[in-house]
Amino acid sequence: MNKYIGIVGTNTQRSTNRQLLQFMERHYQDQAEIELVEVAGLPMFNKPADRVIPDRAAEIGKKIDESDGVIISTPEYDHAVPAVLMNALEWLSYGIHPFLDKPVMIIGASFGSLGTSRAQAHLRQMLDAPELGARIMPSSEYLLGHVLEAFDKDGNLNDQGRIDRLDALFADFEEFVKISKELWHTTEYDKQEISKLDKTDFGSN
């Protein structure tokens, strides 16, 4: 059984994105283990010259590193990913690179009808940066719009069509995780590239 890390892309207590991940955790418990990880509470990334990253960031990095893949559920603020998630990704690409070649599935929930379409595109762009270098599952948006009506009182998605779509996407993700293991040819080059970038970041100038 694969183990995935589910990242909640917000710091708000009442988050429908967290709810969506919690639903997946339960719904797929026979197929995979999904551990939810919160990104709230990290200090604002300020590129510290001493390279020291917060313990919490290192801990999240380790969890990701040890996982088979990552599922990120993002809200959308101002047509983009919330600062709190961006901040986590900055820490998780500063001297440590747990996302490198890690299979990632992006989902998102919103109150309106667009379902975080712009934030998801933004997140893809970020995860594609060399310091993150994630393997994002292609052509796989899951846009959960009108989310306030999407869950029943037990926190389950109440629309079978939406569940079926998520099931199909998750099945694809499991395959994608397998296939990703074959995509190793560039790994060494990516690592070299990153280590060069790290040197520039941490250089004396």
């Binding site: 604002m44 990334f45 300020n46 603020y77 983009a80 600062a83 961006m86 690409s93 970020m126």
Partner: peptide, 12 residues
């Protein structure tokens, strides 16, 4: 530019 985007500090 951090990770192909603006900093979290500016976004925040």
């Amino acid at each position: 530019e951090h990770n192909h985007t603006i900093t979290a500090a500016l976004k925040s």
